[in-house]
Design a protein around this nucleic acid. Structure first.
Lengths: 120, 120
DNA sequence: TAGATACTGAACTATATGGTTCAGTATCTG
DNA sequence: CAGATACTGAACCATATAGTTCAGTATCTA
């Protein structure tokens, strides 16, 4: 199940690693759109845009529904929350480490001053 | 400069899209490590690990320093903050949109009830 | 029903990625 | 100085990605 989360994070981050796809997410944040809408907006063929949308779907960042000829695309945020949570978790860890380093540096500075005083 | 940010986000998200690299970041959160340490820990050749570390360096998520024969690897969080900020920004936008949708749904429900009452 | 519209799938191209091996170079240690 | 250690660069492989074109199918509209 850890592997499963790994796979989902892989897919979510990989999907976010392309500026066109981030643009699509932004666009879909304002209103839903068809493949044609998106292809026009990003100056790309329908086929090309369909591929991007499929990547976003597999990453769980977008859901689509075909109504008649038209495929309606909408955003879904759950995977994005997972990605944000991953970053947040390690940021917290790393900040703790940086604070620890800061403390060490502070200690060293304090000790330097003490040593100076002793030498005078 | 927007392009420049796009490139940095591309690199940061792409770097995060690999579970080995996320593992390396986690590992470096606890203490700094050499290429050999990391290669051993992730059962990979030195050359393979060096490539991952280079990707993390280019993404600004890791800094390295060569001292004698040994390359010391440390985490750096600034780019991660950028990635988190990007996600956060659009999450806010999307949540606003979801709330708007919720409101519409609520309105429809209320109207349904009113209609029911009228029909009785 | 004819034509336009919206999408889909297959095939192809160019480039990137994740990994390897192998043959080095540079640095440390006894 | 000799050998061990730590890394580096080139070359290679298999697979994935980002994009295209072209030839469909399915659905709407006049």
């Amino acid at each position: 199940m850890v592997q499963y989360l790994q796979g989902r994070l892989d897919a979510a981050f990989a999907a976010l690693a392309d500026s066109t796809r981030r643009g699509v997410l932004e666009r879909l944040g304002h209103s839903e759109a068809s493949i044609t809408d998106l292809a026009d907006g990003f100056h790309m063929t329908l086929t090309g845009m369909r591929k991007h949308v499929r990547v976003l779907e597999h990453a769980g960042l977008v859901t689509t529904e075909k109504v008649g000829r038209v495929r309606h695309c909408r955003i879904g945020t759950r995977r994005l929350e997972e990605a944000a949570a991953w970053i947040q978790q390690y940021q917290d860890l790393w900040y703790a480490r940086f604070r620890a380093l800061d403390d060490i540096v502070e200690d060293l500075k304090r000790q330097e001053k003490t040593d100076e005083r002793k030498q005078h």
